[in-house]
């Protein structure tokens, strides 16, 4: 027991992952070299994937690694490289007063959220590492193809539309 928290493998991995996420997030906000930012972004996404796997959601964790840490990070790196001209630094932040004001606002908002979190009695609490009755892939497949068939198809339609729209918007206009 340390500060009333039991030392188990789960809590240790939670704290390590939370530390990775927070350090990467703060680095992302404070660094000004673009490529360092991309590495920090990968750290945040991989840490969140670890949290998902820690919560027993292994399929969602793998999807997170594939889509966020793989595809979206690389896409952001490409966009950063395409839009930087020579200098490797991102454009400077807004002026100091505004940054300070936003910082105070965000800290107050997060503090209020954390107070509410602390004050609420959550009806659910359990210690099982994996509470699901079946492998999550089976459960997700059942949910997606039975209860959520129409939203699933709509998401595929949305992805198609977004793909075509992205190609049309990013295309060079012919003279």
């Amino acid at each position: 027991m340390l500060f009333g928290i039991p030392i188990t493998g789960q809590t240790i991995s939670y704290f390590v992952l939370a530390l990775i996420i927070m350090i990467s997030g703060v680095m992302l906000m404070s660094l000004n070299k673009v490529m360092h930012m991309a590495v920090a972004l990968g750290g945040v996404f991989l840490g969140v994937a670890g949290i998902f796997i820690l919560l027993g959601a292994d399929f969602v964790g793998m999807v997170q690694i594939l889509i966020y840490a793989g595809a979206i990070t690389i896409l952001m790196v490409f966009a950063l490289m395409l839009t930087q001209r020579g200098d490797d630094t991102a454009s400077p932040s807004a002026n100091g007063w505004r940054t300070a004001g936003v910082l105070v606002f965000v800290v107050l908002l997060c503090g209020a959220f954390l107070l509410v979190l602390r004050g609420t009695t959550w009806p659910v609490s359990q210690s099982a590492v994996n509470p699901y009755s079946q492998p999550t892939v089976n459960l997700i497949a059942n949910a997606l193809f039975h209860a959520y068939t129409v939203p699933f198809e709509l998401v595929s339609l949305l992805l198609t539309v977004a793909l075509v729209g992205a190609v049309v918007i990013a295309r060079k206009e012919e003279e």
Partner: peptide, 19 residues
Amino acid sequence: VVLFGLGLFGALTKRNIII
């Protein structure tokens, strides 16, 4: 909450659209 706060701070202060 912490991750949301970090993202909110970045979205409100950074000047580069990609960031």
